[in-house]
Measured scan of single mutants.
Amino acid sequence: MASQGTKRSYEQMETDGERQNATEIRASVGKMIGGIGRFYIQMCTELKLSDYEGRLIQNSLTIERMVLSAFDERRNKYLEEHPSAGKDPKKTGGPIYRRVNGKWMRELILYDKEEIRRIWRQANNGDDATAGLTHMMIWHSNLNDATYQRTRALVRTGMDPRMCSLMQGSTLPRRSGAAGAAVKGVGTMVMELVRMIKRGINDRNFWRGENGRKTRIAYERMCNILKGKFQTAAQKAMMDQVRESRNPGNAEFEDLTFLARSALILRGSVAHKSCLPACVYGPAVASGYDFEREGYSLVGIDPFRLLQNSQVYSLIRPNENPAHKSQLVWMACHSAAFEDLRVLSFIKGTKVLPRGKLSTRGVQIASNENMETMESSTLELRSRYWAIRTRSGGNTNQQRASAGQISIQPTFSVQRNLPFDRTTIMAAFNGNTEGRTSDMRTEIIRMMESARPEDVSFQGRGVFELSDEKAASPIVPSFDMSNEGSYFFGDNAEEYDN
C-alpha cells in the first residue's frame, strides 16, 4: 500500500469516517454492505422474486439502478423543472426478469421514488447511507470498465484509444464523492478537466460571474484530485501550473494530454476495490451473516471469500459463452479491467482472455432483445487465490505491452514486471518541450526514458491461498515475461453508450 500519510484510507472515504482504527473501519464497511443486503432482500420480497430470480444479476442491476435514481437529487430536480413526455419524475423502474413456464419473461416495473427511498433508509437504520449508494455506483463503473473500451470518449477529448488503461471510473457520476474520486484513473480526471476547458473556450461566460466562481472551485478541486494521483514531483508541479492558470485554454489542454500520456509509464495511484452486485450481499445477509459484527474490507480476502460461497446467475444470449460472461463479471467484481492478464489468470486459476476474444456482450439486456431465446446460467466467480488490492500504480518500471492497449494499471499487489510499449508511448511525445512547463516536461520525458521494462514492481508481494486469511504465506508467482498482458488488445469491444 502506498503510505497513507495525511490521506484517509478508502474504507474511511467509503464510510465518510473520520480517523478510525482498522477494526472500526471493518465494522463501518460491514455496516454499509449489510445495509445493501437488507435493502436487496426487501426489494425481492416487494417484487415477489423467487430465490433464483433474486440471484439473477440482471435483476440486481435494475434494483441497484432504481435506488441510485431515487437518490439522484440533481436529476430529480431537473426532471421536475423540465417535464418530458412519458417520463414521470417521481417514478423509477426498469426490467425485471421472471421464469414463467420454463421461459424467461421481461416485466417492466415502476415504483415511486419516495417508496424506494423509504425501503433503502429502513434497511440502513434510517440513514441515507450515501456510502452504500456510492458502492453500487463503483460496481456499475467497474462493470462498464470491463465491458467497454471507451474509444470515442478518448478520441473526443484528444487522447489515444490505446490509453484505455487510464480510464478507470470514466462512467462514474460526478456525485460519487471521495470514494469515487479515489477509483478514477488519470485519464478519467484528464477527460473531465478537458471537457471543462473546452467549454470555457467555447463559452465566454463559463468562468464568469457567480456560476463561474463555482465552476472555478470545481476545476481547482479536480486538479488537486489529479495532482494527488501522480507520484513524481515534476508531474505534480505541472498540475500546479494547470490549476493556477488564470484562464484555462489550449496550453492547459496540451499540458493535460501530455500528463495523461506520461501516466502510461509514470503511473498514478488509483484505488481498486472489489464492489459486488447487491444480489451477492442480499443472500449472505439472508443466511444470517452479520457483516457489521464480522467486519468487512473491500481490499482484502473478504470479497473473494464471499464470491467463493455465492451463487449468481445471468441471462445468456443464444451465441454467448457462459464462461466468457463469467470472466467479464469476475473482472468487474475485482475492479480488474486494466490489470495484467498474466496476473489475473494466476489468481483466477483459469486463463483470462483479452476482451476481443470473449464471445459475450454486456450483462444488460436491451429492451428490444428477444426473450424467447434467452437461457440462463451460473456465473463462475470463484478464484484459485486471493491478493491484496493496490492503491498505487506500482513502481515506475515497465515491460512490453500489446498493440491495442499500451500499458496497464495494476489492481493487485503482486510481484511482476509491468508491461508497456515504450516505443509507441515515446513516439507520441513530439519533443515539444517549450513553453512555461518546459523544464517539467524535459524531466518527465527523462524519467520515462530511463524506466526499464525488466524491473520488478511490488517486490516480494504474492497471492494467498483462500485458507490464508491473515495473509501469512505469500506465494510469489513467476510470469512468462514475453507473454501478452493487455485486456483490450487489438480490440473490438462495443462502445459504451450512456
Rank of each mutant, 00 (worst) to 15 (best):
N205R: 02
I265Q: 01
S274W: 06
N142W: 03
S413G: 13
T423D: 01
G435A: 12
H324R: 10
T433I: 10
C279A: 14
E24R: 01
M440V: 15
R98D: 02
G30I: 12
A284S: 11
G35V: 12
I57D: 04
W139N: 03
A70S: 15
E454R: 07
R156N: 08
I96T: 11
L381I: 10
R213F: 07
T62E: 03
S165K: 00
R243N: 08
E80F: 06
N498C: 04
S262D: 07
M238D: 08
Q149K: 12
V270Q: 12
H272T: 04
Q405Y: 02
W330I: 07
R382T: 09
M136R: 00
A401K: 02
S486A: 09
T257K: 06
A178Q: 10
H140P: 00
I365P: 03
S482F: 06
I408E: 00
R293E: 14
Q235W: 08
P283F: 01
K357N: 09
G485F: 01
E369I: 09
A428R: 01
K7S: 00
N432S: 10
K48P: 13
K90P: 00
A233K: 06
Q415Y: 04
A286E: 11
E107P: 06
R267I: 07
D421P: 00
N59C: 01
V67P: 05
T437W: 09
L358H: 10
M448D: 04
V270P: 13
R441N: 06
W139F: 12
L266M: 13
Y148I: 03
Q20V: 12
Y97T: 00
R175V: 09
L353W: 00
V186T: 06
R195E: 02
D128E: 14
P410H: 11
E107W: 10
D240Y: 09
S60T: 14
G200H: 04
T134I: 10
S376E: 03
G187V: 07
I225P: 01
N250E: 08
T411G: 06
S383A: 06
G17H: 05
Y487D: 09
Y289E: 04
A323E: 09
C279E: 05
S69L: 10
I425F: 09
R175H: 07
L276T: 02
N417W: 00
I408K: 05
R174P: 06
P477A: 12
M137T: 11
E220T: 13
S392G: 15
Q241S: 07
A178T: 14
M159L: 15
P83S: 14
L154T: 01
I119L: 14
T396Y: 01
A278C: 10
T171M: 02
A472N: 11
W120S: 12
Y40Q: 10
R342P: 01
Q398M: 15
A471I: 01
E64V: 10
N202Q: 15
E484F: 04
T378L: 00
E53P: 00
Y313I: 05
L298A: 06
G34V: 07
A451M: 14
G17A: 14
A403K: 01
S478W: 14
D112E: 12
S3V: 04
S392T: 13
R117D: 08
E434D: 15
L193I: 14
I475K: 04
N211A: 06
I217Q: 04
F429G: 03
G200M: 12
S467H: 01
V270Y: 07
I57Y: 02
K113F: 05
T171L: 04
P318E: 05
P474N: 05
Q4R: 00
K229V: 10
M481K: 10
P477G: 01
N124F: 14
E469R: 04
T433E: 12
K87Q: 09
A427S: 11
Q399H: 13
A182I: 04
L108A: 13
S245R: 08
I116G: 00
D480G: 11
L379F: 05
R436A: 12
H140S: 07
T45C: 05
L381S: 09
A178R: 11
A251K: 02
N224Q: 15
E192C: 08
Y219T: 03
L328T: 10
G356P: 01
N101I: 07
Q235G: 13
V67Y: 13
M331Q: 07
T45V: 09
Q241F: 06
Q4C: 00
I57N: 09
Y52D: 01
L315W: 00
N144A: 14
M481V: 15
E24M: 09
P322A: 13
Q12T: 10
A233Y: 03
G180W: 08
W139P: 03
S450C: 06
I138W: 06
G185P: 01
S287Y: 03
G54I: 01
M167I: 10
N144T: 12
I197D: 07
I445W: 03
L110S: 03
V312D: 00
K357W: 07
M43C: 11
E375A: 09
I57F: 11
L264H: 11
G30T: 01
